[in-house]
């Protein structure tokens, strides 16, 4: 639908709108002017008041100085608190690393212990001891000795890096291995790189209560293993007890199995 009104009406409406906007703007300007005028009056009064009453002025000044100094103290306290928090943060980070390391060590010890008691087969137990010493300790040349109860000598029954026959046998109390087993004390020399077939750097006696079962004698560590760690010492202690128990149990089991088979043979002979 077309607009039939003359164009003059349109122009008048535009003008009216413009005029209304101008009026609103003027009102805003007047209000702003009034606000500024009041602010000037306030400031003038304040100045006059301060000039008339220097004590009040000093009091105000004192209050402001105190406020500034209290804010300064607050800032200082925040800074100190921040330093304390930073320090705590560093301590937590260090503790986290320690716990992480402990966690890793416990995992190694758990795995070693779990594997040692996972079988009653003597050859399997010895194989697991070899695995632990290679993979968890990082030994390159070593032997597992078992006490021969008939001869009372320690004989190498398994080894890594050399044949078992190349490791000397020991009587209880003789040589590093024999002495370690007799005393029950772990022999450990730091710097495990020495390559001396006759002198192990580590000897872990394997004992069940006071009964000697055998020993682990480490002669050389892997190329990348530079020194013993606290975990290695924990592993030596664990092996000393758990490997001994595992060997002892496997031997007992094997003996009892043999006896059971013999008895079963007799029973079969008698009943058939």
């Amino acid at each position: 639908m077309s607009d039939d009104r003359p164009p003059i009406f349109g122009r008048a409406e535009e003008f009216l709108t413009l005029f209304k906007r101008g009026a609103e703007f003027s009102k805003e300007l007047i209000a702003e002017n009034e606000r500024l005028r009041r602010r000037i009056l306030d400031l003038e009064q304040h100045q006059q008041f301060a000039a008339q009453d220097p004590e009040q002025w000093d009091k105000l000044r004192e209050e402001l100085i105190q406020r500034i100094s209290s804010l300064e103290a607050e800032r200082q306290s925040f800074l100190e608190r921040m330093h304390v928090l930073e320090e705590e943060n560093h301590q937590f980070a260090a503790r986290y690393v320690e716990i992480e390391e402990e966690n890793n060590n416990l995992a190694n010890l758990y795995v070693a212990s779990f594997q040692l008691h996972s079988t009653l087969d003597l050859s399997e137990v010895v194989k697991i001891i070899l695995e632990i010493v290679i993979n968890l300790v990082g030994a390159e040349v070593f032997a597992v000795y078992v006490m021969d109860e008939r001869t009372n000598r320690l004989e190498a029954v398994a080894s890594e890096g050399a044949e078992p026959s190349s490791f000397p046998s020991y009587s209880l109390g003789s040589g590093i291995v024999g002495r370690a087993v007799a005393s029950g004390e772990i022999h450990c020399e730091d710097g495990g790189r020495r390559d001396d077939a006759s002198r192990p750097v580590v000897c872990v006696p394997l004992k069940v209560q006071d009964r000697p079962v055998g020993a682990i004698a480490i002669h050389r560590l892997l190329q990348q293993k530079e020194r013993f760690t606290p975990l290695d010492h924990e592993l030596f202690t664990l092996l000393g007890g758990h490997a001994a128990t595992a060997i002892f149990s496997a031997r007992l089991y094997s003996e009892s199995e043999r006896k059971r088979n013999t008895i079963q043979g007799f029973i079969d002979l008698l009943t058939k």
Partner: peptide, 8 residues
Amino acid sequence: DSPTMRQL
């Protein structure tokens, strides 16, 4: 091949 290493 080592069960000990696998478990670890």
